[in-house]
């Protein structure tokens, strides 16, 4: 491992953990979605670092990153759509809670 690569990998790890922390602690759906994105992009960074400095001949890593970007975009699109549908149905304040399912469990 070269010095540069190590730096990138460490940065990616930091981002990944930050994203995970956000997912676990924040309750607003949009922010949580953003944090998931941060995690995915950390992975993308990781793969890119390996692809560029890992001494491999082909472009597999670069292609992989493109796939990660495309798929995560699709995921966010669906996520935002569901979020908007919820906002329309319930009103903004209520969405933050998102605990009907939990409440149902408590009732039992």
């Amino acid at each position: 491992m070269t010095q540069t690569m190590t730096a990138y990998v460490l940065l990616a790890a930091l981002l990944f953990v930050l994203g995970l922390y956000g997912v676990l602690t924040r309750r607003e759906p949009i922010v949580v979605l953003l944090c998931v994105e941060v995690m995915l992009q950390a992975v993308a960074l990781n793969v890119l670092a390996f692809a560029k400095y890992g001494g491999f001949e082909d472009v597999t890593g670069h292609v992989f990153v493109l796939f990660i970007l495309a798929v995560s975009a699709a995921e966010v699109a669906v996520g935002v759509a569901v979020f908007l549908a919820l906002v329309r149905q319930r009103g903004v304040d209520d969405v933050v809670k998102l605990d009907t399912l939990h409440a149902e469990r408590q009732e039992e």
Partner: peptide
């Protein structure tokens, strides 16, 4: 509304678990 709520849950959870999967894969790729 619980359907949407469930979907939201699955998006977040699916996203996180995919991120872990990819993170693991990225090291193997490395």
């Amino acid at each position: 509304a619980i359907g949407k709520e469930a979907a939201m849950k699955l998006i977040v959870l699916g996203g996180v678990s995919s991120a872990f999967l990819l993170y693991g894969i990225s090291f193997l790729y490395g």
